[in-house]
Design a protein around this nucleic acid. Structure first.
Length: 202
DNA sequence: TACGGGATCCACT
DNA sequence: GTGGATCCCGTAT
């Protein structure tokens, strides 16, 4: 069942936590790539020095973050990798959740080919482990690039579905790679499923 | 127009 | 566990 606008139209921390266990789907002309979200981070806009939209910054890149909830914000990091964010709250509030890790559910051979140019069976143990356990890696596996910036996640190309009713424990901790962000560095805005092997860093 | 740094990944030790 | 790759983006000239 596809998640609708109401799911995203809530405060960012709630959405970031509830994204855990949900299914991220990329429908590539009928070819479905699906993964369970296992790790997220919340970015709280105006008062969060780690966020691109800190202080209400409004440049060409960040403009997408001011769009409606349930929109994708995709940006390039270190000149070569893409990161997928999901906008939250309401239009005009530049907040969102970064997807940091997924567990492959369907189309795993396509993901393997996207990442390593060979089917899953031929991957080494290390390659299997590193298939989708990081924001840049899952973007490569699901073929998400900057052409997805600003697309509606309530549409039919990239969207989310409810997960199974499995139980899991959510771990809350500090975010990754934002040491420059002063006091925001210590905010407990990173969430992941305890014990899941596709969490980027434990 | 130039400069500095980054919400990362990979190869190597 | 460490360092290099590599280029876009924001800020300042």
């Amino acid at each position: 069942m596809k998640l609708n606008r109401n799911f995203y139209s809530r405060d960012t921390i709630t959405v970031a936590k509830e994204l855990l266990g949900k299914t991220l789907v990329h429908n590539m002309s009928g070819k479905l790539l699906k993964g369970k979200i296992v790790e997220t981070e919340a970015y709280l806009g105006l008062k969060d020095k780690a966020a691109h939209s800190y202080g209400g910054r409004r440049t060409k890149r960040v403009e997408t973050m001011y769009g409606p909830p349930g929109t994708a914000y995709v940006y390039i990091i270190y000149g070569m990798y893409h990161c997928l964010n999901i906008l939250t709250v309401k239009e005009g509030v530049p907040e969102g959740a970064l997807i940091r890790g997924i567990e492959p559910l369907e189309g795993i051979d396509w993901m393997a080919i996207n990442r390593f140019q060979k089917p899953f069976e031929e991957l080494t143990k290390n390659q299997r482990k590193n298939l989708t356990n990081g924001p840049g890696k899952l973007s490569i596996a699901l073929q998400i690039d900057r052409s997805f910036d600003g697309i509606d996640l309530c549409g039919d190309i990239l969207y989310l579905e409810g997960g199974s009713d499995e139980r899991f424990t959510i771990v809350e901790t500090t975010r990754i790679g934002i040491d420059y962000a002063e006091e925001a560095r210590d905010f407990p805005y990173r969430y992941y499923i305890e014990g899941n092997p596709y969490v980027s860093k434990v």
